[in-house]
Amino acid sequence: MRVLLEVFAAVLLLGGAFFCLLGAIGLVRFPDTVTRLQAGAKAQTLGLVLIMIAAALLVPAPYSALLLLIAVFQLVTAPVLGQVVGRVAYRTGAVDRRTLVVDELAGRLAPPDRDPGSSAGEPEDTTAGQDPGDGREREP
Rank of each mutant, 00 (worst) to 15 (best):
P31S: 12
R97L: 12
L68R: 00
L68S: 03
A24S: 14
P60N: 08
I70S: 09
G47Y: 03
A9F: 09
A39K: 01
A94N: 09
L67C: 06
F19Q: 02
A43N: 04
A89Q: 00
K42T: 14
Y90C: 01
L37I: 09
E104R: 15
I25W: 09
G93Y: 03
V59Q: 07
T45C: 13
Q74E: 12
V49F: 05
T99A: 15
V85S: 03
I70T: 10
L68V: 05
L81I: 14
A10Q: 14
L14K: 01
V34C: 02
V85L: 14
D103L: 08
T92G: 03
A17M: 15
R91A: 11
V95Y: 04
A24I: 11
A41C: 07
P62K: 13
T35W: 09
D103W: 07
F8C: 10
A71M: 08
L57V: 09
A65K: 07
P62V: 00
R97Q: 10
Y63H: 08
L14V: 14
A94P: 05
T35I: 07
L50P: 00
V95P: 01
G26M: 04
F8Y: 12
F30P: 04
A65N: 01
F19Y: 10
A61P: 06
V11M: 15
L100N: 05
L12P: 02
R91W: 09
A9I: 11
V7G: 04
A9N: 08
L50H: 01
P79L: 09
L100K: 07
A54K: 04
V7Q: 13
V101C: 02
V76K: 04
S64T: 07
F8G: 06
L75N: 10
V95I: 15
V85P: 01
P60A: 07
V49G: 02
L22Q: 10
R87V: 00
I25K: 09
A41K: 03
G82S: 13
A65D: 01
L13S: 07
R91T: 14
A71T: 03
V84A: 11
F30S: 06
L12A: 06
A43R: 00
F30T: 10
G82I: 03
